[in-house]
Measured scan of single mutants.
Amino acid sequence: GATAVSEWTEYKTADGKTLYYNNRTLESTWEKPQELK
């Protein structure tokens, strides 16, 4: 079967924080998503 690919993209901001963006739900979060833990 196909492996579930994470929908989350990780961005590094200018101040060194990490922003997570979900390509499916168009949601963005500063918290690390469950799927990435």
Rank of each mutant, 00 (worst) to 15 (best):
P33Y: 02
E35W: 04
Y11C: 12
L26Y: 13
E7G: 05
N22H: 01
R24Y: 15
E27N: 04
E10Y: 07
T18I: 14
T29H: 06
T13A: 08
G1K: 05
E10L: 09
A14S: 11
S6E: 09
K12E: 08
R24F: 15
L26H: 15
R24M: 15
S6N: 11
E31W: 05
D15V: 02
G16L: 01
K17D: 06
K12I: 14
W8P: 00
D15I: 03
Q34D: 15
K17Y: 08
K37Q: 14
P33E: 02
S6F: 07
D15H: 06
Y11F: 12
L26D: 13
W30E: 12
S6A: 12
L19Q: 05
E35Y: 07
R24T: 15
K32I: 10
T9F: 08
E31Q: 08
G1W: 12
Y20Q: 00
T13D: 09
E35G: 09
W30H: 11
T29E: 03
Q34H: 11
Y21M: 07
K37G: 14
E31Y: 06
Y21N: 02
E27H: 04
Y11L: 14
E35K: 04
T18L: 08
T18G: 01
K32W: 03
N23A: 06
A14I: 11
V5S: 13
E31L: 08
L26T: 10
R24A: 15
D15G: 09
Y20L: 01
R24W: 15
L26S: 13
A2L: 12
T29K: 05
K32L: 09
K37P: 08
Y11G: 03
W30L: 09
G16M: 01
E7Q: 06
S28L: 15
T25I: 01
T25V: 02
T13F: 13
W30M: 10
Y21I: 15
N22P: 03
T3L: 12
W30S: 10
E10H: 04
R24D: 11
S28M: 14
W8E: 01
Y20S: 01
E7H: 06
S28Q: 11
V5H: 12
K12P: 06
K32H: 04
G1A: 14
R24S: 15
Q34R: 08
K37M: 15
R24I: 15
Y21R: 08
T9E: 11
A14Y: 05
Y20R: 00
A14G: 07
L36W: 09
K32M: 13
A2T: 13
L26W: 09
L26R: 08
N23H: 13
T3E: 11
T25G: 02
A2R: 03
Y21V: 15
W30C: 04
T18S: 07
L26V: 02
K32R: 11
L19A: 09
K17T: 09
Y11M: 11
Y20H: 01
E27A: 05
E10R: 03
Y11V: 14
L26I: 01
E10T: 10
P33A: 01
A2G: 13
T18F: 05
E31I: 12
E31N: 07
K32F: 04
Q34G: 10
V5F: 12
T3V: 13
K37D: 13
T18Y: 07
A14E: 11
Y21W: 10
T9W: 07
E31F: 07
G16N: 03
K12F: 09
S6G: 11
K37S: 14
E10A: 11
T29P: 00
S28D: 03
E10W: 13
K32Y: 05
N23E: 10
Q34V: 12
Y11I: 15
S6T: 10
L19S: 04
A4Y: 10
K37Y: 14
T3H: 11
K37V: 14
W8F: 02
E27W: 02
E35R: 02
Y20T: 00
Q34Y: 10
L26N: 15
A14V: 10
K37T: 13
G1D: 12
W8Y: 02
N22M: 00
W30D: 09
D15Y: 04
A2S: 14
E35I: 08
E35P: 07
T25D: 03
S6K: 09
D15E: 07
E31K: 06
T3A: 14
K17R: 15
Y11P: 00
T25M: 00
T13E: 04
A2D: 11
L26E: 14
N22I: 00
N23F: 07
T29A: 05
T13K: 03
T29F: 08
E31R: 05
L19G: 08
Y20E: 01
D15A: 06
P33D: 02
E35S: 10
K32N: 05
E10M: 10
R24Q: 15
W30K: 06
N22Y: 02
T3G: 13
S28E: 10
W8N: 00
A2K: 07
E10F: 07
T18V: 12
T18R: 03
Y20I: 00
G16Q: 02
N22V: 00
E27V: 09
K17G: 06
D15M: 04
E27I: 07
L36T: 06
K12R: 11
S28N: 05
T29I: 05
